[in-house]
């Protein structure tokens, strides 16, 4: 009886010794997975549910397309950058300033293999970050960190700040990697541009002094701006949405004057461009063609061409303007005006 108790105690002690995860083991794991340990339902108990001497930052994500978690996809590289920066300074994963205090990174992607892990922490939304602090005894010693970022923002800064705050390791520095691809592209582009500039200076000058070209560029720039391009850039609106029953794609945020999807701007840019160019057609193209025919003494033809072109442009304007009004009525519910009424409805 007594012996068994002693044995049981010994066993528990031994077990804890074995299960306590050493920094060395963590380092092995992270080296195997390329600095970020991959967690799934099988290995998480071993790694997280034991006394530890290191901070472990875990990034929960869902990259599968059916979740359409753009933020997850955007944040993933930033997380890798933080991990890589840490290991480039500390090859063994141990802080140089805090004695025997390590920092490791892990990541778990939501799929059949890691489902259990997600339910363990009752995670209902991704991306999520959990920090298992050094000195914690079990899987329940956990702290959730909220990374206040949004689509399209520079996630690295937010992420690095939040992780630094959570783990309190003074020598965690983040190095933004040099984007060699972009560098090479820039160099090549600059080279090509300089070459073209030097080789074809006079031709380029001719092009650059073409007024209609400038006019088109400016008008197009204005068109995109008044179609809400800046809104999308600042707010990072999603491209389009899903209907409430998740069955069809929605292109317009109906009934909202102050909000929009990205695709709305593209549709509106096209509408505005067609309207504006047809209008310019009415003013510049029609008289020009008429004059051209008249110069050739084809007076009858001139009249007919003038007539048909003018009617064509007017019809295009009417159709696209009615479309614009209809789209606007979608956004502004209760808008009383429309240009076109479907007679069959």
């Amino acid at each position: 009886m007594r012996l068994s108790t002693v044995f049981a105690t010994f066993l528990v002690w031994y077990m804890s010794l074995v299960t306590a995860i050493s920094n060395k083991r963590l380092l092995e794991l992270s080296q195997k997975d390329g600095n970020v340990i991959k967690l799934n339902s099988k290995n998480y108990e071993k790694i997280l549910n034991s006394p530890r001497k290191s901070d472990i930052v875990v990034f929960f994500t869902a990259t599968a397309t059916q979740f359409s978690c753009t933020l997850c996809l955007e944040m993933s590289p930033s997380f890798d950058v933080v991990a890589n920066s840490w290991f480039s300074d500390h090859a063994n994963g141990i802080s140089k300033e805090l004695e025997n205090h390590g920092l490791f990174f892990a990541k778990s992607d939501f799929n059949a293999e890691s489902k259990q892990l997600f339910s363990q922490f009752q995670l209902t939304s991704v991306p999520a970050f959990l920090v298992f602090k050094a000195g914690g005894k079990s899987i329940n010693d956990v702290e959730k960190i909220t990374v206040a970022t949004e689509l399209g923002a520079n996630h690295l800064n937010f992420l690095a700040d939040n992780i630094k705050n959570a783990v309190q390791i003074p020598d965690l520095f983040v190095y933004e990697p040099i984007n060699w691809g972009a560098c090479i592209t820039t160099v090549v582009t600059v080279a090509i541009v300089t070459f073209v500039l030097v080789r074809y200076t006079s031709a380029l000058l001719n092009v650059l002094t073409l007024r209609p070209l400038w006019g088109i560029a400016c008008s197009f720039c204005i068109t995109t701006l008044i179609a809400g391009a800046m809104f999308i850039k600042i707010r990072g609106s999603p491209f389009s949405g899903m209907s409430a029953d998740r069955k069809s794609i929605v292109y317009f945020l109906e009934g909202q004057l102050q909000n929009q999807y990205a695709i709305e701007s593209q549709i509106i840019t096209v509408l505005y461009s067609v309207l504006a160019s047809s209008f310019i057609g009415l003013i510049c193209v029609v008289p020009y063609i008429q004059k051209w025919y008249q110069k050739k003494q084809h007076y009858g033809k001139a009249a007919i061409v003038n007539f048909s072109l003018a009617l064509f442009f007017t019809a295009v304007i009417y159709i696209f303007y009615s479309a614009l009004m209809a789209v606007f009525a979608l956004k502004n519910t209760g808008y009383p005006f429309k240009l076109f009424k479907n007679p069959f409805k």
Partner: peptide, 15 residues
């Protein structure tokens, strides 16, 4: 409708 006349007007001024 001035909003779509706006780019057209800008272009016409360029001419």
């Amino acid at each position: 409708f001035l909003i779509w006349l706006f780019p057209a007007g800008v272009f016409l001024l360029f001419l």
